[in-house]
Design a binder for these strands. Structure first.
Lengths: 143, 143
DNA sequence: CGATGCGCTTCACGAGGGCGAAACGATCTC
DNA sequence: GAGATCGTTTCGCCCTCGTGAAGCGCATCG
């Protein structure tokens, strides 16, 4: 709140705002609503998996078989970043890894399972895989 | 601008704002400055590349193959400044450079890959290359 | 003023390798 | 026993990367 004749403040943070008093309740509400909108545009709830292999994002969920549940846990540990093939193999099969393609096949199956949750497993060639949300709420850069 | 007793508007876009008139020039300036800050906060964060060759700017990203990832790292080290062709060749191929055209071709491919991130590699003839943003966020200050 | 050389851009091609996808069978769970 | 889960094999697409070569603009030189 800014007093009647003082200088307007500078908003250092994007999630700050100010208003000159006296102001109507509706004006304050509008400013608060604007702040809330800016906040929700930035923050998105992260997916979460429990010990029973139930993966939840928002209000939707799917149940994952053991191997894919462990793979998902490893991907969620580094959510939004690349997880190497080796790390995924070690996470999915703690007692020695099976053949080369087992991981590929499970990633393929996992992809189809998590797609309805707006989750996507992106391939980073010769590096590994990356878990992220496939659709993002509209916040288009000015172009 | 909102008239004296009308209802406050709803800001649909994060890059909108409003002010109730009459207002001092300083207040309007402050609001405009706040908008400019929000804009630059979205568009201006410096690009960043991790060890996995993932180049991020804002909320978008692309994965770069090994050679182009090293070139990009070298360009980001001197972000906005010229990097000589020799320096790029040494960064891209630490164990001896291949043919002379290899660098040019990789720069071409890198250009197309980073274009969707609003990044551009500008040529400085007989000097080297320069990485910068391809879209300029704000016009000149109002005055 | 025109010609030539240089630097840079762009395309096309091929070798090598990573990865996707389907199909099949074996094992496990309810 | 039915359905789900898991591992393997096979096939082939497409990405990566280097090379050769043609196209184009600019500056210097004749």
């Amino acid at each position: 709140m800014v007093e009647g004749d003082s200088l307007p403040p500078m908003c250092v943070d994007e999630l700050e705002d100010w208003i000159r008093v006296p102001a109507s309740e509706a004006d304050v509400q509008a400013r608060v609503e604007g702040l809330r909108r800016r906040l929700s545009a930035q923050v998105q709830p992260a997916p979460d998996i429990d010990e029973d292999g139930v993966l939840r994002v928002g209000d939707r969920w799917v149940s994952l078989p053991p191997v894919e549940a462990r793979l998902t846990a490893a991907l969620l540990d580094r959510y939004g970043a690349v997880v190497s093939r080796d790390a995924l193999a070690r996470a999915g099969w703690p007692n020695g890894s099976p053949g080369r393609n087992a991981l590929d096949v499970h990633v393929l199956r996992l992809r189809r399972r998590v797609a309805p949750l707006t989750l996507a497993i992106r391939t980073v060639r010769s590096r590994g895989y990356l878990l992220e949300r496939s659709v993002q709420p509209a916040s288009q850069p000015i172009g």
